[in-house]
Nucleic acid binder design. Structure first.
Length: 459
DNA sequence: GGATGTTTAACTTAGG
DNA sequence: CCTAAGTTAAACATCC
């Protein structure tokens, strides 16, 4: 039996599919020859390694605390970008690109969240509220690669997304990765391949372009909801080595016998501000910091301070490979043009957290789902698809407490985004979807109240 | 040749 | 201490 904590908000969110999304997705399903029930997903074994969508839970947890801007009323994927006023590229305002790094942790418009982090999250160090990752190139976003991939997939509003689009979205929305060693892309690929939550959708022969597409395996949404609630760690804050190195360029020759760094005043100031902002100074007291916004930040450490046995793994010793961001061919750049620009993840999350919760409406998706009787927008959710004893099979046999939520989430992930012409319809990439992150993000704080009691109301 | 994709391995961290 | 999850690196294959 699962018990919901305040940091496990999925079920509420999962009920929040907007009708528009459902219908659009239903139409898309008809067009989309590829479904989550293809052979690759069917044959996958539901083992525990890298299969569960626990990371999606993390996603949802973070979603409640990700920095966000003012409470604009807009749909998730970007009514705000329908306009042409979108910046040409986030790079334009990228301070790191012009050698003037933002103060790490410096509060931005996104920083002063009106939401208080959930206590449990604070305790676990999930509170990136003070950082605008879109412009802060120094602090590694506290999202796992799988989460980032999922974000990109979500943001794309497509049911499938190319690797280059994932790269693009990440670099566009997380400044850190624009300047980070491009090996993170290797990690992305590694994640896509290894993480069974992601399904590769081969490109059709008549489809131009490189590589295939990727989508989320809906089976693992099931998995997520049927028992994969475990606490997850958050990575420590990591400073962009590339930018660190840039700072080191300013380090003055060290006089003999002098201990410590001698950096130019600007760098000193930046470092000092950063330490203040992150609590990453030697006097940082976790006990004192606990419960505060700053204290909720992970301490800077780890890769920066710990030795690794593999010598070349030392970021400081390793020559920084500046990402030249040659991520996309010209065609791809054009193809996903709207993807770049001012996609505002903060706003996206804000939207998920604001009043757009279809849960408010009371009955979002469930009636439809029930009507279809295990047929999700034309795709029958068959227990056969899941190995005996799997969560899927279990769901069929014994109605768990999360049956509905599970099913809804599965339904969503079955075809989370309206499938548009993948190769031709990207002009509206990220621009017109009303897909709601409710399915992925927790909404406790915006809904308030006791989660368990709300669950009861859902059942 | 570069991008993409797969696989293996080593490693860190957090939780049980 | 063990395990799971996640990260990073690297080797290799395939495809355009």
């Amino acid at each position: 039996m699962l018990s919901l904590s305040c940091a496990e908000p999925w079920p509420e969110g999962s009920v929040g599919l907007e009708e528009e999304v459902v219908t659009a997705a239903a139409q898309a399903e008809e067009r989309d020859g590829v479904s989550g029930t293809d052979s690759s997903s069917c044959s996958v074994s539901l083992d525990d390694s890298l299969t569960s969508l626990q990371w999606l839970q993390e996603f949802s947890i973070l979603g409640t605390n990700v920095p966000h801007h003012a409470h604009h009323q807009h749909h998730l994927f970007g009514h705000q970008q329908l306009g042409s006023e979108a910046p040409a590229s986030p790079l334009a305002g990228d301070p790191a690109s012009i050698g003037m790094p933002l103060t790490p942790g410096k509060p931005t418009a996104a920083a002063y969240s009106r939401m208080q982090p959930l206590p449990g999250i604070v305790a676990h160090g999930h509170c990136p509220d003070d950082v605008d990752y879109k412009t802060n190139a120094h602090i590694k976003p506290p999202y796992s690669y799988a989460t980032l991939i999922c974000m990109a997939m979500q943001a794309s509003k497509k049911s499938k997304i190319t690797l280059s689009c994932i790269y693009k979205w990440i670099t566009d929305n997380f400044c850190y990765y624009r300047h980070a060693d491009p090996t993170w892309q290797n990690s992305i690929r590694h994640n896509l391949s290894l993480n069974k939550c992601f399904i590769k959708v081969p490109r059709q022969k008549d489809e131009p372009g490189k590589g295939g597409f990727w989508k989320i395996d809906p089976q693992y949404a099931e998995r997520l909801l049927s028992g994969a609630y475990k606490k997850r760690r958050m990575p420590p804050v990591q400073i962009n080595p590339a930018l660190q190195n840039r700072l080191r360029m300013n380090v003055q020759p060290q006089p003999r016998g002098q201990i410590g760094l001698c950096v130019n005043p600007e760098s000193q100031r930046l470092l000092r501000e950063f330490e203040e902002a992150t609590g990453a100074d030697q006097n940082w007291d976790p006990h004192l910091a606990e419960g505060t916004m700053l204290g909720s930040w992970p301490v800077v450490r780890g890769r920066c301070g710990l030795k690794r046995k593999q010598g070349s793994r030392n970021g400081a010793a390793k020559a920084p490979r500046r990402s030249s961001s040659p991520l996309l061919s010209m065609d791809e750049q054009k193809e996903i043009g709207p993807l770049k620009g001012d996609f505002d993840w903060d706003a996206l999350l804000d939207s998920a957290l604001s009043g757009e919760l279809s849960l408010e409406g009371g009955e979002p998706l469930s009636p439809i789902m029930k009507e279809e009787d295990l047929t999700v927008r034309g795709t029958h959710i068959s227990p056969v698809e899941a190995p005996a004893g799997s969560a899927e099979a279990e769901r069929s046999n014994n109605m768990s407490d999360f049956d509905e939520e599970t099913f809804l989430a599965t339904a969503f992930l079955e075809n989370p985004w309206p499938e548009e012409e993948e190769d031709h319809g990207r002009s509206d990439f990220l621009c017109s979807s009303t897909v709601n992150l409710d399915q992925l993000f927790g909404l406790e704080d915006s809904l308030g109240g006791d989660p368990s009691s709300r669950i009861d109301t859902l059942l």
